[in-house]
Simulated scan of single mutants.
Amino acid sequence: MTSGAISKESETLKYGIIGYGGMGAIRHNAMRAIGQNVAHKIYEIRPVPEFRDLLVDDYRKIIDDPEIEAVIICTPNFLNKKLTIEALKAGKHVFCEKPPAFNGTEMEEIIEVEDQANRVLMYGFNHRHHGGSIKIRETIESGEYGRVLWLRGRYGKSVDENYFGNWRANKELAGGGILLDQGIHMLDLFLQIGGDFDEMHAFVSNLYWKLPGIEDNVFAIFRNSTSGTCASLHSTMTQWRHLFSFEVFLERGYMVLNGLKTPSGTYGAEALSIAKNRSNAPAATWEDEEVHRYDVDQSWEREMANFVAAVNGTVTPRSRDSFEALRVMRMIDRIYDNERHQSGQLFTKLNGEMSL
């Protein structure tokens, strides 16, 4: 998590962007909004008329350019690890979209290169930087409501048959389904607030779209055995309506964040309800709540400002971002491994019953 303030670095950064689809444009706009110049070079396989003079025909012309200090990577998932490693080895600072890799082992390989390169490496977990998420973290850190008891996160969207033509529908390109697409953000929020969860059970399914290796639903529960904090996740693309809901319940109150301010507006208004005090049983009333509404999404600007400040050495991150990414990927590994283990047990059980 980060402070709600957005700092504009006076020192501009020479950066290149690899991948100028929707996310590349969002990152570029955010950089310009915080006072950075336009990108030095852009690589994109499709035309980008407004920046045609910046386009290069090979991404290596960005990575190998000695004038470029940082590379922003906004490509399909399967390219993230490869391009990050190449850019770090070329001496560039790197900002890369999530997921950082396909699994924890790949993330460890990236960290080895990062250690040798001694450059800033950050990943696109912008949900940490939404106004509601920042307020949740600040409220918890104030201690006013006591310790966190449990968390619940629901994050889902609706897709149609057009999804089949998207690279996200291909396991080789995407690495997984809705968990790597959206659920990863909720897991990151869990870790930011609940610490490490060493106990877990999960169900992964693709009952509707039936795409090989592309799950459309994940149900998972976690527990931090040290603190006792529990968390529940539902990540889905068969919800038929876009929904974001993040709930934090503490000893002396609760916080419920519903909606998410996004460019598409499909997740509804972002509103955080906080119980001011603990009412008499059986429950708090609506009148006990204070509601914070966030009408402008500044998460992209905050995130890019953090990256530029880290590169310029004007801010020290709370924790090393690649380690945070590794924690998330290890959780994802455990979810997928748990499902494979359960499926193997079911296959063994059914085979045994058929042989009777």
Rank of each mutant, 00 (worst) to 15 (best):
M1H: 11
M1C: 09
T2K: 07
I6E: 07
E9D: 15
E11P: 00
L13R: 08
K14P: 01
Y15K: 07
G24W: 02
G35K: 09
G35L: 05
Q36P: 02
V38C: 07
A39Q: 01
H40P: 02
Y43I: 05
I45W: 09
L54D: 04
Y59A: 04
E69G: 06
A70W: 01
V71M: 07
V71E: 11
C74G: 07
P76K: 03
K81S: 09
I85W: 01
A87G: 08
A87H: 03
A87F: 05
K92H: 12
H93N: 14
F95M: 12
N103C: 14
G104D: 05
E109R: 09
I111K: 05
E112R: 15
V113F: 05
E114C: 07
E114G: 04
N118E: 14
H127N: 10
R128I: 01
S133E: 10
K135S: 04
E138Q: 15
G146A: 08
V148M: 06
V148S: 02
L151Y: 00
G153R: 00
G156E: 05
K157Q: 10
S158M: 09
E161H: 06
F164Y: 15
G165Y: 08
N166K: 10
L173G: 03
G176H: 06
L179P: 02
D181L: 05
Q182C: 10
Q182A: 12
M186L: 08
D188L: 02
I193F: 02
D196S: 09
F197L: 09
L207M: 12
L207Q: 14
Y208E: 12
W209L: 09
L211T: 07
D216P: 00
T226I: 10
S235I: 00
T238D: 11
T238R: 10
L243G: 06
Y254S: 15
P263W: 05
N277P: 04
N277L: 11
N280F: 13
A283S: 15
A284G: 14
T285V: 13
T285Q: 13
H292R: 05
Y294R: 02
D295P: 09
Q298H: 14
S299Q: 01
R302S: 09
A310K: 01
G313C: 02
S322Y: 01
A325G: 03
M329Q: 04
M331A: 04
I335A: 02
E339T: 07
Q342G: 15
